[in-house]
């Protein structure tokens, strides 16, 4: 039987843990809202860029097409850009991404392809190093950044694009958690490079009389790296939202567990106290009877 004192200490410690998880839940809720708003705000740019790229890509299939759009013509080396979080306490969020990355990497390796991993986030690196350490070519940490700026995404994507032009890989995929709701985040795998050719609907078609300055090729050359950067930025925001969503859910569950634990401990505490009182009474009564 634990002593009254030790029970009291346990209850106090669980209660302070619950305070922390409750606070983290609230913080995650607030951050989630911010990340969601940012992801939505970036959509018009992505749509506008996709429309222009789709239109320009229609008449560009030849060898003069930019490499970012047409690819290198080979599919030997794949780069996986894996986006994970910097901090834990967010449930299975990172494990889910890492599992997807491992499966994807193993599938590509089984086909005889070369796989390179570019890991963003401390948590994913720690997990991937164990199984696929020798495939990791670069890591990046976004630690300590409160708000994700576009600059951040731009630096990251410029690095990836530079590696592409240096011939380090043929195809790039981006692996991140798509935000569905606070409860569900879907680990997603999208092709980053070569840039996907967006479908062009009739309403989005550019007028035939349009003039290009200086040339469609030059416009694509300017727009494609931006489009890649926006893709990376959107994915980073989505995964940020997913991370906070996952943390919210995890912390909610933790607070509830702590509540249940406090209930159980309080019950034991009261019973023990009651037992001690009864024992004392019995001692007094039997002492009096003996007289």
């Amino acid at each position: 039987m634990p002593s009254l004192k030790s029970l009291k200490t346990r209850i106090a410690s669980v209660r302070s843990t619950q305070k922390i998880t409750k606070a983290m839940n609230l913080v995650a809720t607030a951050k989630l809202r911010g990340a969601q708003a940012a992801a939505l705000a970036g959509r018009p740019f992505a749509e506008g860029a996709a429309r222009v790229i789709g239109n320009l890509a229609l008449n560009m299939v030849g060898p003069e097409a930019p490499k970012l759009l047409a690819g290198t013509g080979r599919e030997q080396t794949h780069l996986l850009l894996v986006i994970t979080s910097e901090r834990g306490l967010c449930g299975a969020y990172n494990s889910n991404i890492v599992r997807l990355a491992r499966r994807k990497a193993d599938a590509l390796l089984a086909e005889g392809k070369t796989v390179k991993l570019y890991v963003v986030g401390r948590k994913g690196r720690a997990q991937l190093v164990r199984t696929h350490g020798r495939h990791i070519v670069a890591t990046r940490s976004l630690e300590g950044r409160k708000m994700l700026t576009f600059e951040e995404a731009r630096t990251l994507s410029d690095d990836v694009v530079a590696r592409f032009h240096a011939g380090e890989f043929d195809v790039a995929h981006i692996l991140f958690a798509r935000y569905q709701s606070a409860l569900t985040q879907i680990p997603t795998d999208e092709r980053l490079i070569p840039v996907r050719r967006p479908e062009v609907t009739d309403t989005a078609r550019l007028p035939a009389s349009i003039e290009f300055e200086p040339s469609p090729e030059a416009i694509l050359t300017e727009l494609l790296p931006r489009s890649v950067a926006v893709h990376v930025y959107q994915s980073l925001l989505e995964s940020r939202a997913s991370e906070e969503g996952a943390r919210m859910t995890a912390m909610d569950a933790a607070s509830r567990n702590a509540g249940e634990m406090i209930g159980r401990l309080t019950l034991t505490y009261n019973r023990t106290r009651q037992a001690a009182i009864t024992k004392e009474l019995i001692e007094i009564i039997s002492g009096a009877e003996a007289l």
């Binding site: 349009i210 003039e211 300055e213 200086p214 300017e222």
Partner: peptide, 11 residues
């Protein structure tokens, strides 16, 4: 660019 400018796409 003024109102009624011809369609153009420029970097």
């Amino acid at each position: 660019v003024l109102a009624g400018h011809a369609p153009v796409l420029s970097t």
